[in-house]
């Protein structure tokens, strides 16, 4: 039996098809688990899928490069997906224009605070430069975060994991924390979710209110742009070595 499995597995494991299929199935399993858990943000389908695939890679002794040779076809779509964020941004432009000062200042303050505090805490607790620079872009939507990390010498895989984990954390605590601070404006809730927790947290507030959904989309798009400008500046101010 083991021999038969090996005979099928070994040639398939080096083709792109197997790892492409496994990535898709892992995502579907993650989606299914999330549904069973009543859409709880803790049961994040991407996190579940990453753990499933990672465990499979380690169990079969497959090197990551071999996996990525197949999965790169999915990875490639991150570029067009990032560009696609332009559409909700353009469709919600009327909201940006109407509260330009609020959106601009809140975005700038939130973006700088998240980026700088992330880098500062990692540095204070003895983390290295590459870890700190992987932390810096983690609040923006994952495809942009990955691209920025690559750009400044962070570790893209670590950034991806941090972006997802941070998004889950923001989704879980966001509403409670803001309500405790007596923030009762849907635009503020939406924008904060988009800026601090990108897509994961936005998915949490978007169904509650249309205005919150619009401002979450604005937060994701504009914060992506702003963070992509701030992080290279931070990296430049912190020379290697």
């Amino acid at each position: 039996m083991m021999h038969a499995i090996k005979e099928v597995w070994t040639p398939l494991a080096v083709t792109p098809l197997l790892w492409l299929a496994i990535t898709l199935f892992a995502y579907l399993i993650g989606k299914w688990i999330q549904k069973v858990c009543h859409d709880s943000p803790v049961a994040n389908p991407v996190l579940i899928a990453i753990v499933l695939v990672a465990v499979l890679l380690m169990a079969t002794g497959t090197p990551y490069d071999q996996y990525f040779a197949g999965a790169q076809f999915i990875h490639f779509l991150l570029g067009p997906a990032t560009v696609a964020l332009a559409i909700p941004l353009a469709l919600n432009a009327v909201h940006i224009r109407r509260s330009l000062r609020g959106v601009g200042l809140a975005l700038l303050a939130g973006s700088v605070t998240t980026t700088v505090s992330g880098v500062a805490v990692v540095w204070m607790l003895g983390g290295g430069r590459s870890v700190a620079l992987s932390m810096a872009p983690k609040s923006v939507t994952t495809p942009i975060a990955i691209a920025v990390a690559q750009e400044v010498g962070g570790v893209p895989a670590l950034t991806a994991a941090l972006a997802i984990a941070g998004g889950i954390f923001a989704a879980v605590i966001g509403q409670a924390v803001l309500r405790w601070l007596r923030v009762d404006d849907w635009r503020a809730h939406g924008l904060a979710a988009g800026v601090a927790g990108s897509g994961v947290a936005a998915a949490q507030v978007a169904p509650l209110n249309g205005l919150a959904a619009a401002f979450a989309a604005i937060g994701i798009g504009l914060n992506g742009l702003l963070t992509a400008l701030i992080v290279p500046l931070l990296a430049y101010l912190w020379p290697v070595g």
Binding site: V46, L57, P156, A157
Partner: peptide, 11 residues
């Protein structure tokens, strides 16, 4: 979009 960053996340 979640599906699209699994390959990077597995890294």
């Amino acid at each position: 979009m979640g599906l699209l960053f699994i390959p990077a996340g597995v890294g």
